[in-house]
């Protein structure tokens, strides 16, 4: 998930380093053509003369630094964008779900998944023993980027979304593959005591494998899901997912209205974050 303190710090570190590298680049670019005779002028002249021999490699190094830190800051995205997205998701959560009296808000969630390629899922690179045929880090994945609320932020569930769209997993994967808004509700309640028939039904209706469901039997699974593709500059950037632990927790008509609003805002915000 993006909008947390670590990412904000990392973004500002990158921006600071980019500024330092940019200043160094300009200074050494000025020093490089200067004459040796400057040495006689003052202490500054002596300093410049001493630095001159290193000016060529320094220009290259600082130039590379500017590019590198700019790229890293671009990958992380400006923190204000993610803070704004988070605030919008909290508002959507208030309006898009049917709440019962006393029900905790984290039973209903709004999550933004980003479609990424190999290098972004560093955990999958490290856990190379989990690689399988067609499930490599470079296969194409939908990974969570932002989520409503202040809990369940350490989500590490990602879904396969490869070029061969038939193999896309989850409701999120189907929304991405078909480029359509998909709503699945009235899913069966799955627990550790559930029969294999119930597990199979849940897996089929949510487009995941039975093993995927079995691995999560100890945790509460959503009983209604809605996936909406999100576009930036005409390309599918990712998928917005609304999930609820209630079997009819999503107000489908309300979602259609909200999606119009969120779709416009995300399109503009994510363009800034790109």
């Amino acid at each position: 998930m993006r909008p947390n303190g670590w990412w904000t710090t990392a973004f500002w570190c990158c921006k600071t380093m980019q500024w330092i590298a940019g200043t160094g680049l300009v200074l050494f670019a000025i020093i490089q053509p200067m004459d040796e005779s400057l040495k006689n002028l003052s202490i500054v002249g002596e300093l410049i003369a001493a630095l001159r021999p290193f000016s060529r490699p320094a220009v290259v190094a600082f130039g590379a630094g500017v590019v590198l830190f700019k790229y890293l800051a671009h990958l992380i995205g400006p923190p204000w964008v993610w803070a704004a997205i988070h605030a919008i998701f909290d508002e959507v959560r208030e309006r898009a779900f049917k709440y019962k009296d006393g029900e905790p808000v984290h039973h209903h969630r709004v999550t933004l998944f980003e479609h990424v390629h190999f290098w972004r899922i560093w955990r999958l690179w490290l856990c190379f023993w989990q690689w399988k045929v067609g499930r490599f880090p470079w296969s194409g994945w939908l990974v969570p980027s932002a989520r409503s609320g202040h809990t369940t932020k350490s989500c590490s569930t990602w879904f396969l979304a490869p070029d061969d769209a038939d193999r896309a997993e989850g409701v999120v994967g189907q929304a991405w593959a078909t480029n359509s808004q998909i709503l699945v509700d009235k899913l069966p309640e799955v627990s550790e005591s559930s029969s294999s028939t119930v597990i199979a039904e849940y897996a089929t209706r949510t487009f995941v494998s039975q093993d995927w469901v079995k691995d999560r039997l100890g945790k509460p699974l959503p009983r209604s899901l809605c996936g909406v593709p999100i576009e930036v500059e005409g390309r599918i950037w990712g998928v917005l997912v609304l999930d609820s632990r209630a079997e009819d927790g999503i107000k489908s008509q309300k979602v259609t209205d909200l999606v119009d609003f969120v779709g416009i805002v995300l399109r503009h915000l994510l363009r800034r974050a790109k």
């Binding site: 189907q174 808004q181 709503l183 909406v228 593709p229 489908s252 259609t256």
Partner: peptide, 26 residues
Amino acid sequence: NRHKMNRPLRRRIKGAEVTVFLSPYD
């Protein structure tokens, strides 16, 4: 009238019944 043009459809995808709307961008 966007709502009139984007009516929900019941479709079967990979053996599962789902409600499908067009992408809001379309």
